[in-house]
Computed example of a mutant assay.
Amino acid sequence: MKTIKRVLPIFILLMAFLCLSWNNPSTLASKNSIVLVKYKTQPNKSEEVINNLTALIEEVKKEPHFVSIKLHVDPKDPTNILLYEEWQDAVYYGNEHMKTPHLQQFITNARNFLAGPPEISLWQVEKVF
């Protein structure tokens, strides 16, 4: 229980930082953005995390501005999971997406299988080759 009480505020602060770190929303909305989400699972919970993420992604795919998500597992350490997400609108991602019921439910359930809050970073597509 102490871990949950420590993890939740950190996760909320991380989300707030992500939302506040965008300088110019109109510029961000003009190009697709990449979001990298790194998860660390609790020991022996990788399969449970993958199952929960798969269910979450099925709902996320229905959202506006969604382009794609690729789920990666570290072949050397299956407790490391990475989502590579592409969105048409970073402002939508940082606001409306974060408030969706399916994401909020995942965050609540994540206490049962994640070792802590995810590391989230936003990347702007500059060039495609």
Score class of each variant (00 low, 15 high):
H65L: 07
S46T: 14
K40E: 13
V125Q: 09
E48I: 08
E126A: 14
E86M: 06
E47S: 14
W87M: 07
M15N: 05
P43R: 03
I81T: 08
H72D: 02
S46R: 05
I120E: 02
M15T: 08
I107H: 12
K62A: 04
P117G: 15
A115S: 13
K61Y: 10
L71C: 01
E47H: 08
T100R: 14
I50Y: 00
V91C: 10
K62M: 03
F113Y: 15
P75I: 01
K2Y: 04
V125H: 06
E126L: 13
I57R: 05
N32M: 08
D89F: 15
N52H: 15
K70G: 06
H97W: 13
L36F: 08
N24S: 02
S30R: 14
Q88K: 15
P75F: 11
D77S: 10
K127L: 14
P78K: 11
E85F: 04
S46V: 00
L114E: 04
P78C: 04
N95S: 15
N32A: 10
W123Y: 12
I4V: 08
P101H: 13
L83N: 08
L103A: 11
F106R: 06
N95T: 14
V7H: 03
D77P: 10
H97C: 04
A115N: 13
I10S: 06
E63I: 00
Y39L: 03
D77E: 08
Y39N: 03
F11S: 04
S46P: 09
N44E: 11
P118D: 07
T108H: 10
M1A: 13
V60C: 05
R111I: 14
A16F: 05
V125N: 13
L13Y: 01
V49S: 10
I81W: 03
Q88D: 12
E58L: 11
K38V: 00
D89G: 02
N80H: 14
L20T: 03
V7G: 05
A29F: 05
I81Y: 02
Q104G: 06
A55Y: 01
V60A: 13
S30N: 15
G116K: 09
M1N: 03
H72T: 01
P64H: 05
F66W: 12
E58K: 13
F11L: 06
S68Y: 04
L82P: 11
F113C: 00
T79F: 03
N44V: 03
E126K: 14
V35A: 10
H97K: 06
H65W: 01
L18A: 06
T54S: 10
T27C: 01
P9F: 05
